[in-house]
Every structure is written in C-alpha cells, then in structure tokens.
Amino acid sequence: MQNLFIGKGNLGDSPKLKHVAGRSGDFTVASMRVMFGRYGQTEDGGVEQVGGFWREVEIYGAKAEACAKHLRKGARVLVIGEEREFTATDDDGNEVQVIKVVAEDVALQLSRIESITFTPSRARETEAAEV
C-alpha cells in the first residue's frame, strides 16, 4: 500500500451493497460514508473533538457482504486501507477531486456498545425443556 490509511470513525449511513461486472468476473462492493474525528487536549487535561472529515470508504468481496450485513448507521468502525484520489463530475458538470479510502479491512469497534442481551444456547435449551 502506498498511502496507508488507518482511522476510527462513525458511519454516516448504513453501507450500500452493489454487484459490479469486471474484467475478471463479477464482484461485490460495499460503499459507506465515515466521519473521522480529530481530537485535541483541553486545558484541564481532558480530550475533546476539535474537527473531523468525511471519507467515502469502499471494500470488496466477502468483506463487503459482511459489512452490509453487520454494520449500521452510527456504528464505530476501524478502517485500514489506502487513500486514492479520483476525478468526478458534480451535479453542475464541474470536475472535482474526490478522495476515497479503498479498505483492506473494516472492523466494528465493540467498545461503543453499551449493552448486549446474550442468552447462551444451553439456557435456551433449558427454558424450552421446562415449558
């Protein structure tokens, strides 16, 4: 990777999955917008967000399908990939430079989950047997 990108951010919307025909066959792409925050230290030693930036993130193949299945708007994710610059045309017909992250890996950051209801399979079997 030439332009290694590693960042933690929040999904601005749920991933959008699409199937694309390529030279070597069909492949799956998940695209998502992620807000990466910038943090700084306050005078009293705390940490506060002092800015941030949005990036379009794309991931391919089986990982794309997993992202579409498990990630939702607002999820905290760790993105590892490569930043690439593209030329695109906006709604007014002007050419603009767009920076995307082509992800090698996207991981859900579980530290943001406050509570999970978990019932072990043996407990469900015991409950079913008692009924």
Rank of each mutant, 00 (worst) to 15 (best):
K73W: 10
S115Y: 00
E95P: 04
V101M: 02
V131E: 05
V34I: 09
G7Q: 13
D13K: 15
T87K: 13
T89C: 02
Y39W: 14
T117A: 01
T117D: 07
E56P: 02
S24A: 11
M1W: 07
V50I: 15
V47G: 10
R23H: 01
G25Q: 04
R122W: 00
I6K: 11
Q2K: 07
E104G: 05
E82C: 06
V102C: 01
K69W: 03
K73I: 09
G12R: 06
G7M: 12
E58Y: 10
M35W: 15
L108R: 02
F27M: 03
S31N: 07
V34F: 10
Q2H: 14
T117P: 02
G9W: 15
A129H: 01
A128S: 00
A107K: 14
V47H: 11
V96R: 13
K18A: 12
A123R: 03
L17T: 03
F53K: 13
L78D: 11
E104M: 11
G51S: 10
G74D: 03
V77M: 08
P15E: 02
V102N: 07
V20A: 11
A68F: 04
A107R: 14
A66Q: 09
V98S: 00
S24H: 13
T117Q: 03
K69P: 00
E125N: 00
P15T: 04
E65R: 04
V29W: 03
A68E: 09
T42E: 07
I99K: 06
Q41E: 15
E104F: 02
H19K: 14
S31T: 15
W54S: 05
